[in-house]
Design a binder for these strands. Structure first.
Lengths: 128, 128
DNA sequence: TTGGCTGTTATATAAATTGTAGCACACCCA
DNA sequence: TGGGTGTGCTACAATTTATATAACAGCCAA
């Protein structure tokens, strides 16, 4: 999968990395059971430190997207705790929609954006 | 308005503060032209440092939610740069929906959540 | 068995962020 | 004039971020 890191971004490197991997899972570019590159290999490919990649993997594990095996490395393994996920979504969506509403983005525009993003998922063939 | 700060949260104090004020605007508890408490007063009420409140206000100004007057203090004044706002929304929504999708939250569930949040806005009487 | 790969852990360093603290300034208004 | 306003500055401690080495145990193929 294509990983693109913006060194000028104010977003932490390990967060850019983990977020891109999550989006890779959502678009089915990564599937259950697939192995991610080793921390050293990916660090070398991107040109960042091993520990930064390791931190990204640790975050992915803590949030239930991968399981880490000592010999196989990080393997995609979704732990579906839907209640927790919905709670998280509600909180983050609350702030996001508040900002949007203040900027005169309508409910309909938000719905349209959701559909747009979801159609993009299905373009890759996918989870539903 | 009611401001509630969680000192045990991993979210920075100034971000909790600015986010709550943004949500206050979205729910019409703050309206265009309303003055926020002075940095010293709000700091005293919450029990945090003056500079932390000042940073929250600075963020709000940079993101176009308030204007700061030397004698009136921070006043709600929305600067609507819709193109920028939509761009921001797209990016953040992309990550948020990717996470949700991985956790088997359907498109319909997301739409329902959006409606639920928006209905809560209208409960306060509001911007549309 | 050895060599090389895996994740993991530890220590160290530098830079940036976060929050607190105190002080001073210019401004405005009662 | 006195007291309130935002703002600017310096300073400090704690935490986070990213890098850099180094070492360890586990595994597997040559």
């Amino acid at each position: 999968m294509y990983i693109e890191i913006d060194f000028n971004s104010d977003e932490a490197l390990y967060l850019q990395l983990s977020n891109q991997i999550i989006m890779g899972i959502a678009t089915s570019q990564y599937q259950e059971g697939d192995a991610l590159p080793s921390v050293r290999q990916l660090a070398d490919t991107i040109g960042i430190n091993m520990h930064t990649v390791n931190k990204a993997y640790t975050v992915l594990r803590q949030e239930g997207f991968v399981k880490v095996d000592r010999r196989k490395g990080a393997v995609i393994a979704i732990d579906i705790d839907k209640i927790k996920a919905v709670e998280e979504l509600k909180k983050e969506m609350g702030v996001l929609l508040a900002k949007s509403r203040c900027k005169n983005i309508s409910r309909e525009e938000v719905h349209a954006l959701i559909d747009e993003i979801y159609e993009n998922y299905e373009e890759y063939g996918g989870r539903e």
